[in-house]
Design a protein around this nucleic acid. Structure first.
Length: 269
DNA sequence: CGCCAGGACGCCC
DNA sequence: GGGCGTCATGGC
């Protein structure tokens, strides 16, 4: 990653990065499209932080009103600028289907998000659509003035969460808050635990099944080997990989999954 | 009106 | 252990 400081902004030159594809592909739900780019109102990976970022050309990005220290210490990490996606996609492209997926939506990057926020977000995501997921998370943040931590949410009951209009998921959110707040589920420990152990630990939370657990591992714990399988990916696996997913992808299967997901969903458009 | 949305649960056999 | 109805809510 190449960057320079200009007034109060950081100018980043980075290939294989598209803001729309990365911030609106269903891995994060709190980035809002505004006139000059995107804004995350309450928190990115970091409590009570905010950022406005915009893309001004194919490979040029402006991080507005950010100190060099904050950029290097927070946002460069959040946007995974240490990873060479060009090299990654080169590897992926040895596979025919993935080659197509990479050239279709090659600007997606895996965000390094907060694990707790991802847990809550993907519990909300079950049997739901993206606009409504965003709406529920909006109301959650608005209610507290920020994305609430587990301790705050543990004070709630399914009834007191009715303002969310999250339906049957409210009781799941309460259980998640209880588990994390009481220490029954230790997200930091899970983040570095062996992957199967981590999956089992997450699934102790009510409303967390295989798909949600995998999303929390991938999007909230940067476990790149995690591979969320939803109806779309099921379709990809059945149609293009009847003999199984290529093994050389395994350690980065989650990132490959992102390209495939975006590709298959837009295939008919 | 019915159908669907990046699923999980409970119950069935 | 796989198959299926059910679960709230809102957009189309």
């Amino acid at each position: 990653m190449d960057y320079s400081v200009k007034n109060n902004d950081i100018i980043v030159c980075e290939k294989d990065f598209d803001l729309d594809e990365t911030l609106d592909c269903g891995q994060a739900f709190r980035w809002k499209k505004i006139d000059r780019g995107y804004r995350c109102t309450y928190e990115g990976r970091f409590l009570n932080d905010s950022l406005t970022v915009s893309q001004v050309s194919d490979d040029t990005f402006v991080f507005h009103d950010v100190s060099e220290e904050d950029f290097l210490g927070k946002w460069a990490d959040y946007f995974d600028f240490d990873t060479d996606y060009s090299e990654l996609k080169k590897q992926f492209s040895e596979d025919e289907t993935l080659a197509k997926a990479c050239s279709f939506a090659g600007g997606i990057r895996l965000l390094r998000q907060n694990s707790w926020e991802c847990l809550i977000s993907f519990i909300i995501s079950q049997n739901n659509n993206i606009p409504r997921i965003k709406g529920i998370i909006d109301r959650l943040c608005e209610h507290y003035g920020e994305f609430p931590n587990a301790s705050k949410m543990a004070e709630e009951t399914p009834d007191s969460l009715s303002f969310l209009r999250s339906g049957f998921r409210a009781k799941y959110l309460c259980d998640a808050a209880d588990c994390v707040n009481s220490g029954t589920v230790d997200l930091n420990a899970i983040a570095t635990a062996p992957i199967d152990e981590a999956r089992a630990a997450l699934k102790k939370i009510k409303g967390v099944g295989p798909k949600v657990a995998e999303c929390v591992l991938l999007f909230g714990m940067y476990r790149k080997e995690a591979f969320p399988v939803d109806v779309w990916i099921k379709r990809v696996l059945a149609d293009y990989y009847p003999n199984g997913f290529p093994e050389f992808i395994n350690e980065n299967a989650g990132i490959a999954q992102q390209y495939l997901f975006h590709y298959i969903r837009n295939l008919n458009e």
